[in-house]
Design a protein around this nucleic acid. Structure first.
Lengths: 341, 341
DNA sequence: CTGAAAGCGCTTACAG
DNA sequence: CTGAAAGCGCTTACAG
């Protein structure tokens, strides 16, 4: 039983393939009578159009390409959920590709998207990957929206989280709570988000506590590095009165180090993170953090892309930042109200 | 600047399109000299093959369709990660589609896959969806591997977690710990996993504690329903000495209800879940549970599918179950060793 | 309103 | 080893 094609339907309905095509695509220049016949024959034959053939002649795939550095973890899960939400609303498929931090592979993935998708959503947080991205973009000839990436040049919209503003706001909050010796656990050096958060910490410190030395510890966004940083701080001759980690996982690692050492959080040292992962609300004490609405990031980016595809214009949207939200829990001191950055 | 096609490359390299095609597909019946010229011209022109055209004539898409009920949460994140892992090893793309619990949409999604993918990975935990699945499968004419689904008939491989065996093993473990009044918080009624876990609880109870009445509370897999069940149990005239929830989220909800009521876990009531989500290890007391290796489920399913596509035979693999693993933490009583189900 | 035909960009026997 | 040509299954001007 071979696959049934549009020809089979045409033959069975005694019309041309052009007519079948028109009916199936909902064109209105078809007689009611003929339309019904075609539709019922198509159903009877269990006909399903062949997407590749359709794409080839219509030059539309009804799909979006999503190229991410990784798929593991809640961040990507949320991002994909946001993307999926608007994609399905527009009846667009999602072609997913993760390049696992390999810049070469990112280029390959982008190229392989030609003829498969109508536009590209690309996240490239590695500061080094921007060139490859630029190449690939010109290669693919497709509308592109960049997510949380260093602007790779002129073309394409870039959408990201306001990491800089969020980090600044967190430092402001800690300072307003009376903290003065605020240590920062940084993220990976080649990561754009990490970079921006560090910059926010520095700028806020310079502005609010001029003359105070920066206090920066290395980290790489995972819990273990936060734990290490915490132990370093415990061993330091002078301890900070607050620790701000560039993300929640490191903040939690640091928190566990403190708790193991019998240090009271927030009594002796206040603690804050960034992201607001679910765990942040479950641990004890609850972790204060800057909430990033990842799903919204994904859905916004997708909206922009869909618009770009529809307009057929090269995307010239300005860079846009999504606000973060301060979430105050016990780890940073006495409870206060939420505010927005 | 229009997109460059294989014709442009052929012209620029002074060869036929057939030869360009051969070079690009790595066929060996091409002179070294010609090969090099074509390759360098292709690179120079930044040529990228058009996937739809290639798919149409080669009848291969190099892509796998993944149809899931939802994308939200860690389960799907892990599943996709496992799938992606083997897909990338075989250089296969992933077309993702979630039908959000809508059986109609599931059918539509499956149909839309024709001409886009070489095979289908489908998860359909809704017991009612099996008919639609069967329809769609015959429609799509593609190799299918079902994940955690009720066997929809003869065709297609079914791969799933051994929910029944895992639940049995958990009850056995609780009984061996001296517990006799074991309440069970069930999952959604139309969910296949939930169904199997409940069956495991029942079978184990009937076997190990004959004559003991089943003690089943309703739940729907989320934390709130676990919390509700916990409050019900607190209010009961007689309390259980152990509670086994059909998943971790409900177990955690139940745990919070107990802790709020000042009930000692596991002192007064032991508690166990199913899944081993990361939270299970972070809460205090740590939650005993049955670990399900979701990523492995995804990668196994994908291996089977890839094999099915390669063999071109209708898949007739028997139903397969992935073992679960008992993880003992504080919530179930004194620490013991891990064992496998 | 309907059909014949060209064309989308490839791959693959078939000759040579 | 290489090329001309048919064909994959659709869509879309172009006529009528």
């Amino acid at each position: 039983m071979a696959n049934v094609t549009i020809k089979d339907v045409a033959r069975a309905a005694s019309v041309s393939v052009a007519t079948v095509s028109r009916v199936l695509n909902g064109h209105d220049n078809v007689t009611e009578h003929v339309r019904d016949r075609v539709l019922s024959v198509a159903r009877e034959l269990r006909y399903t159009p062949h997407a590749a053939a359709r794409s080839l002649s219509s030059r539309r795939t009804q799909a979006l390409g999503v190229v991410l550095p990784d798929l593991h973890g809640e961040f990507f899960s949320e991002l994909i959920r946001g993307i999926d939400q608007v994609a399905r609303r527009h009846r667009l498929h999602l072609l997913l590709s993760s390049y696992h931090g390999d810049v070469e592979e990112q280029g390959t993935a982008l190229q392989a998207m030609r003829g498969r998708v109508d536009g590209l959503l690309v996240m490239s947080p590695y500061t080094a990957a921007s060139q490859s991205l630029e190449d690939a973009r010109s290669l693919s000839q497709l509308p592109v929206v960049l997510i949380n990436s260093q602007s790779g040049g002129a073309a394409g919209t870039v959408l990201g989280v306001d990491n800089h503003g969020g980090a600044r706001a967190m430092v402001e909050y800690l300072v307003s709570g009376g903290h003065r010796r605020i240590a920062f656990i940084a993220g990976p050096e080649d990561n754009f988000d990490a970079h921006e958060r560090l910059r926010g910490y520095r700028d806020a410190l310079a502005e609010l506590l001029p003359g105070t030395a920066e206090w920066i510890l290395r980290g790489d966004f995972d819990e273990a590095s936060g734990h290490r940083a915490g132990r370093e701080l415990i061993a330091a001759s002078e301890r900070p009165d607050a620790v701000f980690a560039a993300n929640d996982m490191m903040a939690l690692g640091c928190m566990f180090a403190f708790l193991q050492a019998g240090i009271d959080v927030p009594g002796e040292i206040a603690l804050a993170g960034f992201d607001d992962i679910p765990l942040a609300g479950y641990v004890h004490p609850g972790l204060s953090t800057m909430r990033v609405n990842i799903a919204e990031l994904g859905s916004h980016a997708t909206e922009l892309l869909v618009a770009a595809i529809a307009s057929k214009e090269p995307v010239t949207e300005p860079r846009r930042w999504l606000a973060t939200e301060l979430i105050v829990r016990e780890s940073s001191g006495p409870p206060e109200r939420r505010t927005s950055s």
